[in-house]
Design a protein around this nucleic acid. Structure first.
Lengths: 281, 281
DNA sequence: CGCGGCATTGAGGCATATCAATGGTCGTGG
DNA sequence: CCACGACCATTGATATGCCTCAATGCCGCG
Protein backbone atom coordinates (compact mmCIF):
# COMPACT_ATOMS: atom_id res chain seq x y z
CA UNK A 1 0.00 0.00 0.00
CA UNK A 2 1.37 3.32 -0.90
CA UNK A 3 0.22 6.53 -2.31
CA UNK A 4 -2.45 6.94 0.30
CA UNK A 5 -3.57 10.48 0.25
CA UNK A 6 -2.71 11.94 3.54
CA UNK A 7 -1.21 15.31 3.16
CA UNK A 8 0.16 16.64 6.38
CA UNK A 9 0.62 19.94 8.11
CA UNK A 10 4.31 19.30 7.94
CA UNK A 11 4.16 19.67 4.20
CA UNK A 12 5.69 22.67 2.59
CA UNK A 13 3.08 24.85 0.94
CA UNK A 14 4.24 26.58 -2.14
CA UNK A 15 1.73 28.16 -4.47
CA UNK A 16 -1.88 29.19 -4.80
CA UNK A 17 -4.62 27.05 -6.27
CA UNK A 18 -5.30 27.48 -9.93
CA UNK A 19 -8.30 29.39 -11.17
CA UNK A 20 -11.34 27.52 -12.32
CA UNK A 21 -12.34 28.03 -15.91
CA UNK A 22 -14.95 25.42 -16.56
CA UNK A 23 -16.87 22.58 -15.11
CA UNK A 24 -14.11 20.14 -14.78
CA UNK A 25 -11.97 22.78 -13.29
CA UNK A 26 -14.64 23.65 -10.80
CA UNK A 27 -14.20 20.17 -9.57
CA UNK A 28 -10.56 20.75 -9.18
CA UNK A 29 -11.11 24.06 -7.54
CA UNK A 30 -13.55 22.79 -5.02
CA UNK A 31 -10.72 20.51 -4.10
CA UNK A 32 -8.41 23.38 -3.38
CA UNK A 33 -5.34 22.45 -1.43
CA UNK A 34 -7.01 21.99 1.90
CA UNK A 35 -4.38 19.55 2.83
CA UNK A 36 -6.77 18.12 5.36
CA UNK A 37 -8.58 14.94 4.73
CA UNK A 38 -11.23 14.00 7.28
CA UNK A 39 -9.81 13.14 10.62
CA UNK A 40 -6.36 14.00 9.61
CA UNK A 41 -5.67 16.52 12.27
CA UNK A 42 -6.37 13.97 14.89
CA UNK A 43 -4.50 11.39 13.00
CA UNK A 44 -1.53 13.56 12.69
CA UNK A 45 -1.65 14.52 16.34
CA UNK A 46 -1.92 10.93 17.34
CA UNK A 47 0.89 9.77 15.19
CA UNK A 48 3.35 12.53 15.22
CA UNK A 49 2.81 14.69 18.21
CA UNK A 50 1.47 12.73 21.08
CA UNK A 51 3.42 9.57 20.87
CA UNK A 52 6.54 11.03 19.47
CA UNK A 53 7.56 7.72 18.14
CA UNK A 54 7.95 8.96 14.64
CA UNK A 55 11.38 9.82 13.40
CA UNK A 56 12.32 12.07 10.57
CA UNK A 57 14.23 10.30 7.85
CA UNK A 58 16.09 11.73 4.93
CA UNK A 59 17.16 9.67 1.99
CA UNK A 60 19.00 10.53 -1.17
CA UNK A 61 17.67 10.14 -4.64
CA UNK A 62 17.87 6.88 -6.52
CA UNK A 63 18.00 4.74 -3.40
CA UNK A 64 16.07 1.58 -2.82
CA UNK A 65 14.24 2.12 0.41
CA UNK A 66 12.08 -0.97 0.81
CA UNK A 67 13.03 -4.05 -1.15
CA UNK A 68 10.53 -6.64 -2.21
CA UNK A 69 10.64 -9.75 -0.07
CA UNK A 70 11.86 -8.06 3.04
CA UNK A 71 9.65 -7.18 5.93
CA UNK A 72 9.10 -3.73 7.20
CA UNK A 73 8.25 -2.54 10.69
CA UNK A 74 7.02 0.91 9.86
CA UNK A 75 4.83 2.82 7.59
CA UNK A 76 5.90 6.17 6.29
CA UNK A 77 4.58 9.61 5.59
CA UNK A 78 6.27 11.36 2.72
CA UNK A 79 6.86 15.01 3.49
CA UNK A 80 8.95 16.00 0.55
CA UNK A 81 10.19 14.45 -2.66
CA UNK A 82 9.08 11.68 -4.98
CA UNK A 83 9.25 7.92 -4.56
CA UNK A 84 7.80 5.02 -6.46
CA UNK A 85 6.65 1.52 -5.72
CA UNK A 86 7.60 -1.20 -8.17
CA UNK A 87 8.12 -4.84 -8.87
CA UNK A 88 10.60 -6.66 -11.06
CA UNK A 89 9.18 -9.54 -13.04
CA UNK A 90 11.00 -12.71 -13.84
CA UNK A 91 11.58 -11.59 -17.40
CA UNK A 92 13.45 -8.59 -16.05
CA UNK A 93 10.83 -6.00 -16.81
CA UNK A 94 9.90 -3.49 -14.18
CA UNK A 95 6.39 -2.38 -13.42
CA UNK A 96 5.81 0.75 -11.38
CA UNK A 97 2.60 0.52 -9.38
CA UNK A 98 2.46 4.16 -8.45
CA UNK A 99 4.36 7.24 -7.55
CA UNK A 100 4.37 8.56 -4.01
CA UNK A 101 4.08 12.31 -3.90
CA UNK A 102 4.58 14.70 -1.00
CA UNK A 103 1.83 14.34 1.57
CA UNK A 104 1.14 10.71 0.86
CA UNK A 105 1.59 7.66 3.03
CA UNK A 106 3.16 4.36 2.04
CA UNK A 107 4.58 1.12 3.32
CA UNK A 108 1.45 -0.44 4.75
CA UNK A 109 1.67 -3.47 2.55
CA UNK A 110 5.22 -3.99 3.63
CA UNK A 111 3.97 -3.98 7.22
CA UNK A 112 0.90 -6.08 6.81
CA UNK A 113 2.33 -8.85 4.68
CA UNK A 114 4.99 -11.13 5.97
CA UNK A 115 7.21 -9.89 3.22
CA UNK A 116 6.69 -6.87 1.09
CA UNK A 117 5.30 -7.58 -2.33
CA UNK A 118 6.89 -4.54 -3.84
CA UNK A 119 9.97 -2.42 -3.59
CA UNK A 120 9.98 1.29 -2.95
CA UNK A 121 12.72 3.58 -4.21
CA UNK A 122 13.36 7.29 -4.14
CA UNK A 123 13.49 9.41 -7.24
CA UNK A 124 14.52 12.68 -5.66
CA UNK A 125 15.91 13.43 -2.24
CA UNK A 126 13.15 12.67 0.21
CA UNK A 127 12.07 13.51 3.74
CA UNK A 128 9.90 10.99 5.58
CA UNK A 129 8.43 10.25 8.97
CA UNK A 130 8.39 6.67 10.13
CA UNK A 131 5.46 5.35 12.11
CA UNK A 132 6.14 2.06 13.90
CA UNK A 133 3.82 -0.70 12.84
CA UNK A 134 3.21 -1.45 16.47
CA UNK A 135 1.21 1.72 16.68
CA UNK A 136 -1.42 0.43 14.33
CA UNK A 137 -3.12 -1.42 17.12
CA UNK A 138 -3.14 1.68 19.24
CA UNK A 139 -4.69 3.63 16.46
CA UNK A 140 -7.45 1.17 15.88
CA UNK A 141 -8.23 0.90 19.55
CA UNK A 142 -7.94 4.47 20.59
CA UNK A 143 -9.00 6.49 17.64
CA UNK A 144 -11.93 5.52 15.48
CA UNK A 145 -11.35 8.70 13.59
CA UNK A 146 -7.81 7.89 12.68
CA UNK A 147 -8.86 4.36 11.86
CA UNK A 148 -11.42 5.62 9.42
CA UNK A 149 -8.85 7.87 7.89
CA UNK A 150 -6.54 4.95 7.29
CA UNK A 151 -9.34 2.85 5.95
CA UNK A 152 -10.66 5.47 3.59
CA UNK A 153 -7.21 6.21 2.40
CA UNK A 154 -6.81 2.54 1.54
CA UNK A 155 -10.08 2.57 -0.36
CA UNK A 156 -8.88 5.59 -2.22
CA UNK A 157 -5.68 3.85 -3.11
CA UNK A 158 -7.70 1.07 -4.61
CA UNK A 159 -9.51 3.57 -6.75
CA UNK A 160 -6.27 5.00 -8.04
CA UNK A 161 -4.95 1.57 -8.89
CA UNK A 162 -8.22 0.89 -10.65
CA UNK A 163 -7.70 3.90 -12.86
CA UNK A 164 -4.17 2.79 -13.58
CA UNK A 165 -5.50 -0.60 -14.54
CA UNK A 166 -7.84 1.02 -17.01
CA UNK A 167 -4.92 3.04 -18.31
CA UNK A 168 -2.86 0.02 -19.04
CA UNK A 169 -5.63 -2.18 -20.32
CA UNK A 170 -7.83 0.07 -22.37
CA UNK A 171 -6.12 3.28 -23.32
CA UNK A 172 -3.71 4.05 -26.13
CA UNK A 173 -0.28 5.44 -25.37
CA UNK A 174 -1.54 8.90 -26.22
CA UNK A 175 -4.50 8.61 -23.88
CA UNK A 176 -2.44 6.98 -21.16
CA UNK A 177 0.14 9.71 -21.01
CA UNK A 178 -2.55 12.39 -21.08
CA UNK A 179 -4.35 10.73 -18.23
CA UNK A 180 -1.16 10.24 -16.31
CA UNK A 181 -0.15 13.88 -16.56
CA UNK A 182 -3.59 15.09 -15.55
CA UNK A 183 -3.61 12.84 -12.54
CA UNK A 184 -0.24 14.05 -11.41
CA UNK A 185 -1.37 17.61 -11.92
CA UNK A 186 -4.48 17.06 -9.83
CA UNK A 187 -2.63 15.31 -7.07
CA UNK A 188 0.07 17.94 -6.91
CA UNK A 189 -2.48 20.71 -7.11
CA UNK A 190 -4.19 19.43 -4.00
CA UNK A 191 -1.07 19.95 -1.99
CA UNK A 192 -0.14 23.24 -3.55
CA UNK A 193 2.74 21.98 -5.63
CA UNK A 194 1.51 23.35 -8.94
CA UNK A 195 2.16 26.76 -10.35
CA UNK A 196 -0.65 27.92 -12.58
CA UNK A 197 -0.83 25.10 -15.11
CA UNK A 198 2.71 23.93 -14.58
CA UNK A 199 4.35 21.46 -12.27
CA UNK A 200 7.75 19.99 -11.69
CA UNK A 201 8.10 16.47 -13.03
CA UNK A 202 11.28 14.79 -11.84
CA UNK A 203 10.70 11.62 -13.87
CA UNK A 204 12.71 10.21 -16.72
CA UNK A 205 10.87 8.88 -19.71
CA UNK A 206 11.97 5.44 -18.63
CA UNK A 207 10.11 5.81 -15.33
CA UNK A 208 7.01 7.02 -17.11
CA UNK A 209 7.19 4.09 -19.46
CA UNK A 210 7.59 1.61 -16.65
CA UNK A 211 4.57 3.07 -14.92
CA UNK A 212 2.35 3.03 -17.99
CA UNK A 213 3.53 -0.18 -19.59
CA UNK A 214 5.23 1.55 -22.52
CA UNK A 215 8.71 1.66 -23.94
CA UNK A 216 10.90 4.64 -23.24
CA UNK A 217 11.03 5.18 -26.94
CA UNK A 218 7.30 5.18 -27.34
CA UNK A 219 6.88 7.52 -24.40
CA UNK A 220 9.22 9.86 -26.16
CA UNK A 221 7.37 9.80 -29.45
CA UNK A 222 4.01 10.15 -27.77
CA UNK A 223 5.04 13.11 -25.69
CA UNK A 224 6.36 14.74 -28.81
CA UNK A 225 2.92 14.30 -30.37
CA UNK A 226 1.29 15.86 -27.35
CA UNK A 227 3.62 18.79 -27.65
CA UNK A 228 3.07 19.16 -31.38
CA UNK A 229 -0.66 19.05 -30.80
CA UNK A 230 -0.28 21.96 -28.40
CA UNK A 231 -1.76 20.04 -25.49
CA UNK A 232 1.24 20.24 -23.23
CA UNK A 233 4.51 22.07 -23.06
CA UNK A 234 7.74 20.83 -21.60
CA UNK A 235 10.74 22.82 -20.48
CA UNK A 236 13.35 20.70 -18.89
CA UNK A 237 11.63 19.06 -15.97
CA UNK A 238 8.67 21.41 -15.95
CA UNK A 239 5.41 20.37 -17.55
CA UNK A 240 2.64 22.78 -18.48
CA UNK A 241 -0.91 21.72 -19.22
CA UNK A 242 -1.93 23.79 -22.23
CA UNK A 243 -5.41 22.39 -22.84
CA UNK A 244 -6.86 20.77 -19.78
CA UNK A 245 -10.26 20.32 -21.36
CA UNK A 246 -9.03 18.55 -24.44
CA UNK A 247 -6.74 16.31 -22.45
CA UNK A 248 -9.56 15.41 -20.06
CA UNK A 249 -11.87 14.51 -22.88
CA UNK A 250 -9.48 12.44 -24.86
CA UNK A 251 -8.26 10.50 -21.85
CA UNK A 252 -11.58 10.15 -20.02
CA UNK A 253 -10.08 11.85 -17.01
CA UNK A 254 -12.27 12.44 -13.99
CA UNK A 255 -10.68 13.51 -10.81
CA UNK A 256 -13.43 12.21 -8.59
CA UNK A 257 -11.44 9.11 -7.81
CA UNK A 258 -8.82 11.27 -6.24
CA UNK A 259 -11.05 11.37 -3.23
CA UNK A 260 -11.31 14.95 -2.30
CA UNK A 261 -15.05 14.59 -2.43
CA UNK A 262 -15.08 11.45 -0.44
CA UNK A 263 -18.22 11.27 1.57
CA UNK A 264 -18.64 11.23 5.28
CA UNK A 265 -21.16 8.68 6.46
CA UNK A 266 -24.57 10.17 6.05
CA UNK A 267 -27.23 10.14 8.71
CA UNK A 268 -27.36 7.75 11.60
CA UNK A 269 -24.65 6.14 13.58
CA UNK A 270 -22.47 9.18 13.72
CA UNK A 271 -21.43 9.33 17.29
CA UNK A 272 -17.96 10.55 16.66
CA UNK A 273 -17.23 14.15 17.41
CA UNK A 274 -17.76 16.87 14.94
CA UNK A 275 -14.18 16.39 13.89
CA UNK A 276 -15.26 13.88 11.32
CA UNK A 277 -16.45 16.52 8.92
CA UNK A 278 -14.10 19.19 10.03
CA UNK A 279 -12.57 20.01 6.70
CA UNK A 280 -12.91 23.62 5.92
CA UNK A 281 -15.44 23.55 3.27
CA UNK B 1 -14.08 -1.37 -3.52
CA UNK B 2 -15.04 -4.89 -4.16
CA UNK B 3 -13.51 -8.24 -4.07
CA UNK B 4 -12.38 -7.88 -0.53
CA UNK B 5 -11.59 -11.25 0.81
CA UNK B 6 -13.95 -11.96 3.54
CA UNK B 7 -15.29 -15.38 3.28
CA UNK B 8 -18.07 -15.99 5.71
CA UNK B 9 -19.48 -18.84 7.70
CA UNK B 10 -22.61 -18.44 5.65
CA UNK B 11 -20.70 -19.68 2.65
CA UNK B 12 -21.50 -23.08 1.31
CA UNK B 13 -18.55 -25.42 1.57
CA UNK B 14 -18.26 -27.89 -1.20
CA UNK B 15 -15.02 -29.78 -1.68
CA UNK B 16 -11.75 -30.59 -0.02
CA UNK B 17 -8.50 -28.71 -0.52
CA UNK B 18 -6.21 -29.99 -3.19
CA UNK B 19 -3.10 -31.93 -2.31
CA UNK B 20 0.19 -30.20 -2.33
CA UNK B 21 2.73 -31.48 -4.80
CA UNK B 22 5.49 -28.94 -4.73
CA UNK B 23 6.68 -25.76 -3.23
CA UNK B 24 4.25 -23.43 -4.80
CA UNK B 25 1.51 -25.77 -3.92
CA UNK B 26 2.64 -25.89 -0.36
CA UNK B 27 1.87 -22.26 -0.30
CA UNK B 28 -1.56 -22.95 -1.56
CA UNK B 29 -2.05 -25.72 0.87
CA UNK B 30 -1.00 -23.77 3.86
CA UNK B 31 -3.79 -21.52 2.79
CA UNK B 32 -6.35 -24.23 3.01
CA UNK B 33 -9.91 -23.09 3.04
CA UNK B 34 -9.92 -21.77 6.54
CA UNK B 35 -12.59 -19.34 5.55
CA UNK B 36 -11.57 -17.20 8.47
CA UNK B 37 -9.54 -14.11 8.07
CA UNK B 38 -8.39 -12.44 11.26
CA UNK B 39 -11.16 -10.90 13.20
CA UNK B 40 -13.77 -12.23 10.92
CA UNK B 41 -15.77 -14.11 13.45
CA UNK B 42 -16.26 -10.98 15.44
CA UNK B 43 -16.87 -9.04 12.33
CA UNK B 44 -19.48 -11.41 11.20
CA UNK B 45 -21.16 -11.49 14.55
CA UNK B 46 -21.22 -7.75 14.71
CA UNK B 47 -22.61 -7.29 11.28
CA UNK B 48 -24.95 -10.13 10.77
CA UNK B 49 -26.03 -11.43 14.10
CA UNK B 50 -26.14 -8.74 16.69
CA UNK B 51 -27.61 -5.91 14.80
CA UNK B 52 -29.70 -7.92 12.46
CA UNK B 53 -29.75 -5.13 10.02
CA UNK B 54 -28.50 -7.22 7.17
CA UNK B 55 -30.99 -8.56 4.70
CA UNK B 56 -30.57 -11.43 2.33
CA UNK B 57 -30.84 -10.45 -1.28
CA UNK B 58 -31.17 -12.64 -4.34
CA UNK B 59 -30.57 -11.37 -7.82
CA UNK B 60 -30.72 -13.05 -11.18
CA UNK B 61 -27.87 -13.40 -13.59
CA UNK B 62 -26.94 -10.64 -16.00
CA UNK B 63 -28.42 -7.88 -13.92
CA UNK B 64 -26.84 -4.55 -13.22
CA UNK B 65 -26.81 -4.22 -9.48
CA UNK B 66 -24.94 -0.99 -8.82
CA UNK B 67 -24.65 1.50 -11.63
CA UNK B 68 -21.80 3.94 -11.92
CA UNK B 69 -22.73 7.43 -10.89
CA UNK B 70 -25.40 6.44 -8.43
CA UNK B 71 -24.88 6.37 -4.71
CA UNK B 72 -25.21 3.34 -2.60
CA UNK B 73 -26.19 3.03 1.04
CA UNK B 74 -24.95 -0.44 1.71
CA UNK B 75 -22.05 -2.69 1.27
CA UNK B 76 -22.57 -6.31 0.43
CA UNK B 77 -21.27 -9.73 1.25
CA UNK B 78 -21.49 -12.18 -1.60
CA UNK B 79 -22.57 -15.61 -0.40
CA UNK B 80 -23.06 -17.37 -3.66
CA UNK B 81 -22.53 -16.68 -7.34
CA UNK B 82 -20.27 -14.44 -9.41
CA UNK B 83 -20.41 -10.69 -9.99
CA UNK B 84 -18.06 -8.22 -11.56
CA UNK B 85 -17.20 -4.58 -11.19
CA UNK B 86 -16.69 -2.55 -14.33
CA UNK B 87 -16.59 0.81 -15.99
CA UNK B 88 -17.61 1.93 -19.44
CA UNK B 89 -15.24 4.36 -21.08
CA UNK B 90 -16.27 7.17 -23.33
CA UNK B 91 -15.14 5.25 -26.37
CA UNK B 92 -17.60 2.54 -25.44
CA UNK B 93 -15.11 -0.02 -24.27
CA UNK B 94 -15.71 -1.82 -21.04
CA UNK B 95 -13.05 -2.51 -18.46
CA UNK B 96 -13.69 -5.06 -15.76
CA UNK B 97 -11.76 -4.26 -12.60
CA UNK B 98 -12.36 -7.53 -10.87
CA UNK B 99 -14.65 -10.43 -10.34
CA UNK B 100 -16.43 -10.90 -7.03
CA UNK B 101 -16.43 -14.50 -5.94
CA UNK B 102 -18.41 -16.21 -3.19
CA UNK B 103 -17.21 -15.10 0.22
CA UNK B 104 -16.05 -11.69 -0.88
CA UNK B 105 -17.30 -8.25 0.07
CA UNK B 106 -18.01 -5.36 -2.29
CA UNK B 107 -19.68 -2.01 -2.60
CA UNK B 108 -17.52 0.01 -0.27
CA UNK B 109 -16.46 2.46 -2.91
CA UNK B 110 -20.07 2.98 -3.83
CA UNK B 111 -20.71 3.90 -0.19
CA UNK B 112 -17.70 6.03 0.44
CA UNK B 113 -17.77 8.13 -2.67
CA UNK B 114 -20.60 10.48 -3.37
CA UNK B 115 -21.29 8.53 -6.48
CA UNK B 116 -20.00 5.13 -7.34
CA UNK B 117 -17.09 5.13 -9.74
CA UNK B 118 -17.95 1.72 -11.08
CA UNK B 119 -20.89 -0.46 -11.85
CA UNK B 120 -21.44 -3.94 -10.47
CA UNK B 121 -23.35 -6.61 -12.34
CA UNK B 122 -24.17 -10.23 -11.74
CA UNK B 123 -22.92 -13.01 -13.95
CA UNK B 124 -24.78 -15.90 -12.37
CA UNK B 125 -27.68 -15.90 -9.96
CA UNK B 126 -26.38 -14.44 -6.73
CA UNK B 127 -27.18 -14.38 -3.02
CA UNK B 128 -26.00 -11.40 -0.99
CA UNK B 129 -26.27 -9.82 2.41
CA UNK B 130 -26.59 -6.07 2.61
CA UNK B 131 -24.89 -4.15 5.38
CA UNK B 132 -26.13 -0.58 5.79
CA UNK B 133 -23.45 2.02 5.35
CA UNK B 134 -24.63 3.69 8.52
CA UNK B 135 -23.15 0.77 10.42
CA UNK B 136 -19.65 1.66 9.38
CA UNK B 137 -19.40 4.25 12.10
CA UNK B 138 -20.59 1.76 14.65
CA UNK B 139 -18.00 -0.69 13.52
CA UNK B 140 -15.17 1.77 13.77
CA UNK B 141 -16.25 2.96 17.16
CA UNK B 142 -17.20 -0.27 18.77
CA UNK B 143 -14.98 -2.87 17.26
CA UNK B 144 -11.32 -2.24 16.62
CA UNK B 145 -11.10 -5.83 15.52
CA UNK B 146 -13.71 -5.53 12.84
CA UNK B 147 -12.21 -2.20 11.80
CA UNK B 148 -8.88 -3.85 11.31
CA UNK B 149 -10.50 -6.57 9.29
CA UNK B 150 -12.06 -4.05 6.99
CA UNK B 151 -8.84 -2.15 6.70
CA UNK B 152 -6.72 -5.16 5.98
CA UNK B 153 -9.19 -6.38 3.46
CA UNK B 154 -8.92 -3.05 1.70
CA UNK B 155 -5.16 -3.33 1.65
CA UNK B 156 -5.51 -6.79 0.20
CA UNK B 157 -7.77 -5.49 -2.50
CA UNK B 158 -5.11 -3.01 -3.43
CA UNK B 159 -2.67 -5.84 -3.81
CA UNK B 160 -4.96 -7.72 -6.14
CA UNK B 161 -5.51 -4.66 -8.27
CA UNK B 162 -1.77 -4.20 -8.34
CA UNK B 163 -1.33 -7.66 -9.79
CA UNK B 164 -4.01 -6.94 -12.34
CA UNK B 165 -2.21 -3.79 -13.29
CA UNK B 166 0.94 -5.77 -13.89
CA UNK B 167 -1.11 -8.20 -15.95
CA UNK B 168 -2.40 -5.54 -18.23
CA UNK B 169 0.78 -3.52 -18.48
CA UNK B 170 3.54 -6.04 -18.68
CA UNK B 171 2.33 -9.49 -19.58
CA UNK B 172 1.52 -10.99 -22.95
CA UNK B 173 -1.93 -12.37 -23.63
CA UNK B 174 -0.61 -15.87 -23.00
CA UNK B 175 0.86 -14.87 -19.65
CA UNK B 176 -2.15 -12.82 -18.70
CA UNK B 177 -4.63 -15.59 -19.18
CA UNK B 178 -2.41 -18.04 -17.35
CA UNK B 179 -2.08 -15.69 -14.45
CA UNK B 180 -5.78 -14.98 -14.45
CA UNK B 181 -6.76 -18.63 -14.33
CA UNK B 182 -4.30 -19.37 -11.56
CA UNK B 183 -5.59 -16.50 -9.50
CA UNK B 184 -9.15 -17.65 -9.87
CA UNK B 185 -8.13 -21.14 -8.96
CA UNK B 186 -6.37 -19.97 -5.83
CA UNK B 187 -9.23 -17.74 -4.76
CA UNK B 188 -11.82 -20.44 -5.33
CA UNK B 189 -9.66 -23.02 -3.65
CA UNK B 190 -9.58 -20.97 -0.48
CA UNK B 191 -13.30 -21.19 -0.15
CA UNK B 192 -13.54 -24.80 -1.18
CA UNK B 193 -15.00 -24.24 -4.60
CA UNK B 194 -12.41 -26.23 -6.50
CA UNK B 195 -12.49 -29.91 -7.23
CA UNK B 196 -9.03 -31.36 -7.53
CA UNK B 197 -7.50 -29.20 -10.23
CA UNK B 198 -10.78 -28.16 -11.74
CA UNK B 199 -13.19 -25.33 -11.13
CA UNK B 200 -16.36 -23.98 -12.60
CA UNK B 201 -15.82 -20.87 -14.70
CA UNK B 202 -19.09 -19.14 -15.59
CA UNK B 203 -17.42 -16.50 -17.76
CA UNK B 204 -17.71 -15.88 -21.46
CA UNK B 205 -14.59 -15.15 -23.44
CA UNK B 206 -15.89 -11.63 -23.81
CA UNK B 207 -15.86 -11.14 -20.02
CA UNK B 208 -12.36 -12.52 -19.78
CA UNK B 209 -11.23 -10.22 -22.52
CA UNK B 210 -12.78 -7.19 -20.87
CA UNK B 211 -11.05 -8.03 -17.63
CA UNK B 212 -7.64 -8.55 -19.19
CA UNK B 213 -7.71 -5.87 -21.83
CA UNK B 214 -7.90 -8.31 -24.74
CA UNK B 215 -10.29 -8.96 -27.60
CA UNK B 216 -12.70 -11.84 -27.41
CA UNK B 217 -11.04 -13.21 -30.49
CA UNK B 218 -7.60 -13.02 -29.01
CA UNK B 219 -8.77 -14.64 -25.79
CA UNK B 220 -10.09 -17.46 -27.88
CA UNK B 221 -6.87 -18.01 -29.80
CA UNK B 222 -4.76 -17.76 -26.68
CA UNK B 223 -6.83 -20.26 -24.75
CA UNK B 224 -6.57 -22.61 -27.66
CA UNK B 225 -2.80 -22.31 -27.44
CA UNK B 226 -2.92 -23.05 -23.73
CA UNK B 227 -4.99 -26.13 -24.46
CA UNK B 228 -2.73 -27.27 -27.25
CA UNK B 229 0.27 -26.79 -24.99
CA UNK B 230 -1.38 -29.12 -22.49
CA UNK B 231 -1.39 -26.53 -19.75
CA UNK B 232 -5.11 -26.40 -19.22
CA UNK B 233 -8.17 -28.35 -20.24
CA UNK B 234 -11.63 -27.01 -20.83
CA UNK B 235 -14.91 -28.88 -20.86
CA UNK B 236 -17.83 -26.59 -21.24
CA UNK B 237 -17.62 -24.24 -18.31
CA UNK B 238 -15.20 -26.37 -16.34
CA UNK B 239 -11.51 -25.50 -16.36
CA UNK B 240 -8.78 -27.89 -15.27
CA UNK B 241 -5.26 -26.81 -14.45
CA UNK B 242 -3.02 -29.44 -16.03
CA UNK B 243 0.38 -28.01 -15.23
CA UNK B 244 0.27 -25.66 -12.29
CA UNK B 245 4.02 -25.36 -12.09
CA UNK B 246 4.54 -24.41 -15.71
CA UNK B 247 1.71 -21.92 -15.62
CA UNK B 248 3.09 -20.35 -12.44
CA UNK B 249 6.50 -19.98 -13.93
CA UNK B 250 5.48 -18.52 -17.22
CA UNK B 251 3.08 -16.06 -15.68
CA UNK B 252 5.13 -15.10 -12.64
CA UNK B 253 2.29 -16.16 -10.40
CA UNK B 254 2.70 -15.93 -6.67
CA UNK B 255 -0.27 -16.34 -4.47
CA UNK B 256 1.14 -14.43 -1.56
CA UNK B 257 -0.76 -11.32 -2.57
CA UNK B 258 -3.95 -13.22 -1.97
CA UNK B 259 -3.42 -12.45 1.64
CA UNK B 260 -3.83 -15.74 3.40
CA UNK B 261 -0.49 -15.17 5.03
CA UNK B 262 -1.25 -11.66 6.02
CA UNK B 263 0.56 -10.78 9.18
CA UNK B 264 -0.82 -9.77 12.49
CA UNK B 265 1.01 -6.89 14.11
CA UNK B 266 4.01 -8.27 15.87
CA UNK B 267 5.16 -7.33 19.31
CA UNK B 268 4.13 -4.26 21.24
CA UNK B 269 0.93 -2.36 21.32
CA UNK B 270 -1.29 -5.35 21.11
CA UNK B 271 -3.97 -4.66 23.60
CA UNK B 272 -6.74 -6.32 21.67
CA UNK B 273 -7.88 -9.69 22.83
CA UNK B 274 -6.40 -12.86 21.59
CA UNK B 275 -9.01 -12.87 18.88
CA UNK B 276 -6.75 -10.98 16.59
CA UNK B 277 -4.66 -14.01 15.81
CA UNK B 278 -7.37 -16.51 16.22
CA UNK B 279 -7.07 -18.16 12.87
CA UNK B 280 -6.47 -21.80 13.21
CA UNK B 281 -2.97 -22.07 12.16
C1' DC C 1 -37.43 -25.12 -36.42
C1' DG C 2 -35.41 -20.86 -36.23
C1' DC C 3 -33.07 -17.61 -33.63
C1' DG C 4 -29.67 -15.65 -30.35
C1' DG C 5 -25.63 -16.14 -27.86
C1' DC C 6 -21.15 -17.83 -27.91
C1' DA C 7 -16.95 -20.07 -29.80
C1' DT C 8 -13.93 -20.44 -33.62
C1' DT C 9 -11.24 -19.32 -37.72
C1' DG C 10 -9.05 -16.39 -41.50
C1' DA C 11 -6.99 -12.20 -43.63
C1' DG C 12 -5.12 -7.89 -43.11
C1' DG C 13 -3.74 -3.56 -40.64
C1' DC C 14 -2.05 -0.72 -36.95
C1' DA C 15 0.02 0.38 -32.63
C1' DT C 16 3.64 -0.58 -30.08
C1' DA C 17 7.98 -3.16 -29.25
C1' DT C 18 12.77 -3.96 -30.54
C1' DC C 19 17.21 -2.90 -32.27
C1' DA C 20 20.55 0.50 -33.40
C1' DA C 21 22.40 4.93 -33.35
C1' DT C 22 22.95 10.03 -32.64
C1' DG C 23 22.63 14.25 -30.02
C1' DG C 24 22.18 17.18 -25.76
C1' DT C 25 23.21 18.31 -21.13
C1' DC C 26 25.37 18.18 -16.85
C1' DG C 27 28.91 17.19 -13.46
C1' DT C 28 33.67 16.07 -12.84
C1' DG C 29 38.36 16.11 -13.23
C1' DG C 30 42.44 17.39 -15.81
C1' DC D 1 38.40 26.20 -19.85
C1' DC D 2 38.01 22.09 -22.03
C1' DA D 3 37.65 16.91 -22.29
C1' DC D 4 35.34 13.24 -20.93
C1' DG D 5 31.80 10.15 -19.39
C1' DA D 6 27.15 9.29 -17.61
C1' DC D 7 22.66 9.80 -18.35
C1' DC D 8 18.84 10.97 -20.84
C1' DA D 9 16.15 12.44 -25.00
C1' DT D 10 15.42 11.73 -29.71
C1' DT D 11 15.05 9.53 -34.19
C1' DG D 12 14.96 5.78 -37.90
C1' DA D 13 14.12 1.12 -39.53
C1' DT D 14 12.06 -3.07 -38.81
C1' DA D 15 9.41 -6.75 -36.41
C1' DT D 16 5.31 -8.45 -34.21
C1' DG D 17 1.43 -8.98 -31.05
C1' DC D 18 -2.91 -7.83 -30.87
C1' DC D 19 -6.92 -5.61 -33.01
C1' DT D 20 -10.46 -5.18 -36.64
C1' DC D 21 -13.53 -6.85 -39.87
C1' DA D 22 -15.92 -10.68 -41.75
C1' DA D 23 -17.74 -15.15 -41.78
C1' DT D 24 -18.88 -19.87 -40.19
C1' DG D 25 -20.03 -23.32 -36.82
C1' DC D 26 -22.14 -24.90 -32.58
C1' DC D 27 -25.62 -25.38 -29.18
C1' DG D 28 -29.48 -24.39 -26.27
C1' DC D 29 -33.93 -22.58 -25.93
C1' DG D 30 -38.50 -20.88 -27.01
Amino acid sequence: LSGLFLSGPTLLRSSEPIMARNNRLDDLKSSEPTRLVPGELQFDALLLDRDRKSKLIRIHKNKDFIVAGSHCESLYVNHDGWLFRYKILRNGRRQILNFILPGEIFGLQACLYKSSLYSVASITDVALSAIPASMLDNIFERSPTASKTLFWAAVCESAVLGEHLIDAARRSAYERISHFLLELFARLNRVGLTNEWSFHLPLTQELIGDALGLTTIHVNRTMRSLRQDKLIEINGKSVTILDFEALSLLSDFENSYLAKDINAPRNGGSTSKSDWRSQRN
